[in-house]
């Protein structure tokens, strides 16, 4: 399959901070790839390298076989702006026209706006849009130039459930027509709903690059917590911490851990078992990665 975007051993530093550490990644035509990772993991830095906003400190980044810093190469991509920065005084239709004008092929304005549920807002000034409407406009702009590859950074953050579903439909239909999508998200649910392939990024490195199912199993971590003064030493604990007299244990198998806990005769009270947050799951993957290296 054709590789549309590629990073080879890409490293990016900001002064002393290592934001990306030798990341290698291929985005192939027709893929719908989810980039998953906590804030500060390096997702945005990776995207900024791929869209030509920054250059890698070392290593190589390619877009359609060329350099992302070449404007002509960027005709094939679409990017979401941050909705907070859209020019307030311009109208919705004007912003779409402005962005479209940069591309040789483009969507009809009416069609594009209708697709993102903005059809009746063409003449509205951006300053008068709700947060959700701005978000949808920002995502719509990524598609304005009929790109082969779109980068969607947190496309549905701040949207209600219905608007999120509408947007997902839009992304799916673009993909069904042969488009390639790279999207970042905090929400595992969003990645599960859309992506086929998931790349987990943490501390500037690729921690996992696999199918949605495989990554879901890895992050299927549970959090067992109870009141006790010290954390017990038991098998199957991925990470433990004590906070305000409560012990928190992360484990892949909570049933077995609780059984072990009872067998060990440890004194505990107020037991609670719940799915770990994505954030906790990431920390777990990250620390496993460190012990393995």
């Amino acid at each position: 399959m054709t590789v549309l975007a590629r990073a080879i051993e890409a490293t990016r530093r900001y002064g002393d901070v290592l934001a990306l550490d030798r990341v290698s990644l291929d985005i192939r035509a027709g893929e719908l790839v989810g980039l998953l990772g906590p804030n500060g993991a390096g997702k945005s830095t990776l995207i900024s390298l791929l869209v030509g906003l920054r250059r890698p400190t070392s290593g190589t980044v390619e877009l359609f076989g060329g350099s992302p810093s070449d404007p002509a190469v960027r005709r094939g991509i679409g990017v979401t702006p941050q909705e907070t920065g859209l020019p307030e005084s311009l109208r919705v239709g004007e912003i779409v026209d402005f962005v479209s004008a940069h591309f040789p092929e483009r969507y009809g304005k009416a069609e594009l706006l209708a697709r993102f549920g903005l059809g009746d807002l063409v003449r509205r000034q951006v300053g008068g849009l709700s947060g959700g409407q701005r978000r949808r406009l920002a995502v719509a702009l990524a598609f304005a130039g009929r790109p082969r590859l779109v980068f969607l950074d947190e496309p549905t953050t701040g949207l209600d459930v219905e608007a999120r579903r509408t947007l997902w439909e839009g992304i799916r239909s673009f993909h069904a027509d042969g488009g390639t999508v790279v999207l970042t998200s905090h929400y595992l649910e969003e990645i599960e709903a859309l992506a086929q392939r998931v790349v987990v990024i943490g501390r500037g490195r690729v921690l996992a690059d696999d199918t949605v199912r495989a990554v879901r199993d890895v992050v299927g971590v549970r959090r067992v917590s109870f009141a006790a003064p010290v954390a017990p030493e038991l098998p199957g604990i991925l990470r433990s911490s004590v906070e305000n007299g409560r012990v928190h244990l992360l484990t892949a198998d909570s049933d077995r851990l609780v059984t072990e806990l009872v067998h060990a005769g440890t004194a505990f009270a107020d037991l609670e078992v719940r799915p770990a947050s994505l954030e906790e799951a990431f920390i777990t993957i990250t620390s496993k990665e460190e012990t393995r290296v």
Binding site: P71, P81, Q82, G85, F103
Partner: peptide, 14 residues
Amino acid sequence: EQPWDPYLRTLPAG
């Protein structure tokens, strides 16, 4: 100061 500025740099124009 606006994020619109970096966004414009991702458009195919110098």
